[in-house]
């Protein structure tokens, strides 16, 4: 578990290092995720410590967003002024995005999905 957590931090650390050094526009943890994925592929499996640490963190993923979200209180004035616009944009745009992505992927990936559900039927 401790070993796993250290591995996660190491990946993040090198991710940050690469991002700073090459001046990339995305954050270190995302590059760290790619580093870990490459490491797991090379290793050919997930060490149990890494699995424990990652499952522990991902279980509480939602909690980790709370501190940043409380920052909304700083922008009370702008939210009050543009509240209706913001609410409309958030709801409509999120709905349209879900619709376009879901329908498109469902069509494009139909081949793989059908194959699986068919084999599922045969097995069942």
């Amino acid at each position: 578990m401790l070993f796993g957590f250290l591995i996660l931090l190491l990946c993040q650390f090198f991710g940050e290092l690469i991002v700073r050094y090459l001046d990339w526009p995305f954050p270190g943890p995302v590059v760290g995720m790619v580093l870990l994925l490459v490491g797991l592929i090379i290793n050919g499996g997930v060490p149990s410590g890494v699995r424990q640490a990652s499952e522990g963190l991902l279980t509480y993923l939602a909690l980790l967003f709370v501190p940043a979200g409380v920052g909304l209180m700083v922008h009370y004035n702008l939210i009050a002024a543009d509240g209706l616009v913001i609410a409309t944009a958030l709801v409509l745009s999120t709905a349209v995005t879900l619709l376009v992505t879901g329908v498109l992927l469902n069509k494009l990936a139909a081949k793989h999905i059908d194959k699986e559900s068919e084999s599922g039927k045969q097995n069942g």
Partner: peptide, 20 residues
């Protein structure tokens, strides 16, 4: 609260495991 916020970093890295 930054101590909780900090864990977002390693949690993002951890997403590599289900992906793998």
């Amino acid at each position: 609260a930054q101590f909780i916020h900090f864990l977002l970093g390693p949690a993002t890295v951890a997403l590599a495991v289900p992906l793998y």
